[in-house]
Simulated assay, not measured.
Amino acid sequence: MAGVGTLGPVVADASPKLPDISAQQLLANVQTAKVDGLSGTVHSSADLGLPALPGVTGGSDSASGQVTEFLSGEHTARVAFAAPDKARVSVLDNMAERVWTTDGKSAWAYDSGKREAVKLQVPEHKAGKPEKAPQSYNPQDVAKQFLDAIDPSTKVDVSGTEKVAGRDAYKLRLTPKTDKTTVGSVTLAVDSKTWVPLQVSVLPRTGKDPAVEIGFTQVSFAVPSASTFTFTPPKGVEVTQPKVPTTRPDVPKSIPSKPDAKPEKKPGTADGPTVLGEGWASVVMVKGVKLTGDGGPVDQFLASAQTVEGSWGKGKIVTSKMVNALITDDGRVFAGLVTPQTLQDAAAKAPR
């Protein structure tokens, strides 16, 4: 965290009734919260105002599909976690189910619609290092990514209390002071006993309805049994076992965040995005994006986008009420929860 933002007053009147707490103390409690396990049902909804991209189906069998899936519509998932390295996420889609689970020794990815399953043996790792689960369906991970954006340009206050999944929660509100971001505010509903974020609501700078909301509709903080994280494929399901990787597998993240440092990846390439800027003004850059130039669906889509140019070159700006992207003629893409001008400023300072 770059620094401590402006802290608001102690909450005075709220319902349900909870002891008064300062924003500084509540923030500290959230950042140090730790539970041995939990399980529950998570509901997410998103309306970022993204224009439809021709040729992109939003399927779940690719990283781009997982991103577009989370950035639109409503989704429900059953989740379970147990320290240090057990996790299970079951996403329910139109009478079908997709499961990702690991017991710390093996990991499974299963799609009931395709009747396919992939099994991986999880390599040894340092004790205490948790296995990563799909972050778009974990309110704690989504909350952390916004908490990491807190800097002196962030106002932090307690805006009241509410009931989430039948539990009493404080409302911790993060309000960016900078005009470089499209985020108006982020509110975390924080459990009053465990200090775990139960819900995250993101409001755009314009409008009163949340652009993104993800939270528990039911939750238990009892540690799930070991059998929760085992998986047996149904009869007739095709199972593949790819070659064991040398590092622990990660599930693609659906919310932009600072990537782990991995020296084998080249910064800015499709395999190694670069994060430019800090906090609310962070921009993700990817190099080597190929535009066909053959008049296909993507080119038709970009034809209607605004053309911009500057010291960084020439390109197209794709805008929405939350996510904006700059696609340059030399194959670079800059994207983030920032204004179009912030994208161009980042492009001007970015390495070629």
Rank of each mutant, 00 (worst) to 15 (best):
G5I: 02
L7K: 05
G8R: 00
P9C: 00
D13E: 12
S22M: 02
S22F: 04
N29V: 02
D36S: 11
S45N: 13
G49A: 10
V56T: 10
V56R: 02
V56F: 14
S62I: 05
V67L: 07
A77F: 12
F81W: 13
D85V: 03
W108D: 13
S112M: 00
A127Y: 14
K129M: 10
E131I: 04
K132F: 10
K155P: 15
V156F: 14
K163L: 10
K163P: 15
A165K: 04
L172F: 03
K177R: 06
D179M: 05
V183I: 11
T187Q: 09
K193N: 06
K193C: 01
V202R: 01
T206Y: 07
E213A: 13
K235F: 13
G236W: 06
T240P: 15
S257L: 02
E264Y: 14
K265M: 04
K265D: 11
G268Q: 07
G272I: 01
T274R: 02
V275T: 10
V275I: 10
V286H: 03
D294W: 04
G296D: 15
V298N: 08
Q300I: 02
F301T: 05
A303L: 08
T319G: 09
K321I: 12
M322V: 15
M322W: 14
A325V: 05
D330R: 02
F334I: 00
A335I: 08
G336T: 00
T339V: 05
Q344E: 13
